[in-house]
Amino acid sequence: MTAPLDVPDASVDPASAPAVAGAGAAAIQGRSLGQIAWMRLKRDKVAIAGALVVIFLILVAVFAPLLVKAFGQDPTQFNSDLIDASTMAPKGGTGISADHLFGLEPVNGRDIFSRVVYGARISLLIAFLATLLSVAIGTLLGVTAGYFGGLVDSIISKAMDVFLAFPLLVFAMALAGIIPDSAFGLTGDTLRVAMLVFVIGFFNWPYIGRIVRGQTLSLREREFVDAARSLGARGPYVIFREMLPNLVAPILIYSTLLIPSNVLFEAALSFLGVGVRPPTPTWGGMLSDAVRFYTIPHFMFFPGMAIFITVLAFNLFGDGLRDALDPKAR
């Protein structure tokens, strides 16, 4: 005996049937990896605070002339009339006032606020450009070594070992002593900035190169790489179209952690007198000048706090970004 057929009720609109069956249930929407990472990052309040501070510092560096015009004065301008001739210290101890928010330097009376603001330009510019150079070289050589392996990997790995053992600080000091006032069509501060970017960026690439090489060694055994090879894809295509997109997360994370290291290194070079030359303000140079006036703490406090806040903000943001982009995180 044949089972009766189920005849749909004519009173029910077929178009509304799915809505009736799923009444009260919200539609499920897919989320990309970027959306998932952003949701994780938003939950990390400390990382968001670090990111906001980083954005603030970048804006300060970009709009330094406007800030100085509104709240300070020319960072190279002397105010000898505000300096006590007997102690060479600012009158009143620090010189802090409505016109000089961070006080005055001893001896010459230059405005500390203006010099800290303009110092952000030098420190962040060198740190960003040096990081970009390190990431570009390290990524290219790291992914090449990891993908091709064999002799290529051996040569690049040995080059990494040589660069990691190189006495970078001594080399920077020696280079600063022999570099002329003009070279390669550059002069003055532009030449010094280019030299620092080259020294810091070119000799720091092995750090990120090792990370990229290790990730590439893991990726080249994955199925999508084997599939690309089986379809006849050549090495450059596999590297740039298949592997590099999967290396964006570790590269981005390490870049945010490399920038504060470069800020510290630039400050150290300026502190030793081999960075950008005076009277151009730098945070490290200001700390070097402040060492002679240890009895006037505000002179050292403000550039030191600028370095501390910058490094801390980048580190907090980098840690949060690492957790957000970690596929194993919950």
Rank of each mutant, 00 (worst) to 15 (best):
I55Q: 01
V20S: 07
Q77I: 00
Q77H: 10
Q73E: 13
P65S: 05
F63V: 08
I36F: 00
P65H: 05
L66Y: 13
G92A: 09
P18G: 06
G22H: 15
P14R: 13
D99F: 02
L82E: 07
T94K: 07
R31W: 03
G95M: 00
S32L: 02
K69L: 07
V54G: 01
N79Q: 13
K91I: 14
K42L: 09
K42A: 08
F71Y: 10
L67S: 05
D44W: 05
A21N: 12
A23K: 13
A15G: 11
V60Y: 01
S32V: 01
P18F: 06
G92I: 07
V46L: 14
A19T: 14
A37W: 03
F63G: 08
I96H: 04
S80T: 15
A19M: 11
D81C: 00
G72Q: 02
G30Y: 14
A47I: 03
F71T: 01
A25F: 10
A15C: 02
K42F: 00
L66E: 11
A64F: 05
F102I: 01
L41P: 02
G72A: 03
S86I: 00
V62T: 13
I55N: 01
A61V: 06
G92E: 09
A64P: 04
A37Y: 06
Q77S: 10
R31V: 03
V54S: 02
L67N: 04
P65V: 03
F56Y: 12
I58Y: 03
G93A: 10
A19R: 15
D44R: 12
V62S: 06
V54F: 03
V62Y: 07
Q35H: 12
A49S: 15
W38T: 04
A19P: 05
A17Q: 13
G30Q: 14
L67T: 04
S16N: 13
T94Q: 07
P65L: 01
R40N: 11
